[in-house]
């Protein structure tokens, strides 16, 4: 439709810049009659922090799930770490391993203790020896403020703790990019802060991040670029200040007005 902005911005990122970490090229995904994502173009550079906003059902989750292949494209091409994945194809597990993902509802493994949640993939995918995997897992737990919870069961944790464990579990694979799908939407309000704090530190550490969220304060503080989706389309994108203070599209303006009045 109107915008070719994302691609232009990706390309303008500096002469001789490295190829994008992720590129979606004309990617569409349908569920029956519903076009969840409609010919999306998006490039994400290494180290970039992208925040995806938009109304419920606009295709935000589908968009980021297309990146790591939890959804398979019907059209177009996904490029991940230089590897092209054509429509109707799943990325190989080795490529997914480079893409950490954090879900709205945590999806911790309830039959494993916290420490084993963190070491499962490093041991079975990266083939790390148990001792090494555990040492690294304990470091990560300390980093998210949960050093004391290694032996706990997921069911014993609060929502905020669960989500911090989920972040640590994803980081244990030392991914090159982290995808967050509304990581604070299922949390009680008093626990949102502790999770956003962990994400903020991760961003400061230089991680490439794609975050679907309604936390506009986080978007403003952390995002390099905000992408607005509506009805399956990427409608517009730009730096947070520009997007929030002078919304370049009437639908974004309407969306922002709605969520601000809801607060």
């Amino acid at each position: 439709m109107t915008e070719a902005a994302p691609a232009a911005q990706g390309a303008g990122a500096g002469a001789g810049a490295a190829p994008p970490l992720v590129a979606l090229r004309g990617v569409s995904k349908r569920f029956g009659e519903v076009v969840a994502v409609d010919r999306a173009h998006l490039e994400i550079r290494r180290g970039e922090k992208l925040v995806v906003i938009g109304p419920s059902g606009s295709g935000k989750s589908t968009l980021i799930r297309l990146i790591n292949g939890l959804e398979v494209a019907d059209e177009g091409e996904v490029e991940l770490l230089g590897q092209r994945i054509h429509a109707h194809h799943e990325p190989p597990p080795s490529l997914r391993a480079e893409c950490g993902m954090v879900f709205q509802h945590f999806h911790l493994f309830p039959h494993l203790r916290v420490l084993d949640n963190l070491t499962l993939a490093p041991r079975h995918v990266r083939r790390l020896p148990r001792a090494e995997a555990e040492a690294r897992a304990r470091e990560l737990l300390a980093r998210v403020g949960l050093a004391g919870k290694a032996a706990a069961w997921p069911a014993e944790l609060s929502g905020g703790e669960k989500q911090r464990v989920a972040i640590a579990r994803a980081l244990a694979m030392q991914p090159q990019i982290m995808l967050f799908d509304e990581p604070t939407s299922a949390l009680d309000p008093e626990m949102v802060g502790e999770v956003l704090e962990v994400m903020r530190e991760l961003a400061q550490g230089g991680m490439t991040m794609v975050v679907v969220t309604h936390e506009m304060g986080f978007a403003r503080a952390v995002a390099d670029r905000v992408v607005f989706m509506d009805a399956g389309r990427i409608v517009c994108s730009g730096p947070p200040a520009a997007m929030f203070d002078r919304p370049p599209h009437p639908r974004l303006q309407a969306f922002l007005a709605r969520i601000l009045s809801a607060r």
Binding site: A97, E98, G100, H107, L108, F109, A121, H124, V125, M173
Partner: peptide, 29 residues
């Protein structure tokens, strides 16, 4: 729930590993 398989796949486990290490043990109980 499907989220268990998705979390396992997202971590880089193969479908068989997801079944063997994540979904299977929970289903067994």
């Amino acid at each position: 729930e499907r989220g268990q398989t998705e979390a396992a796949l997202a971590l880089g486990l193969s479908r068989w590993q997801a079944l063997r290490l994540v979904v299977g043990p929970q289903a067994l109980r």
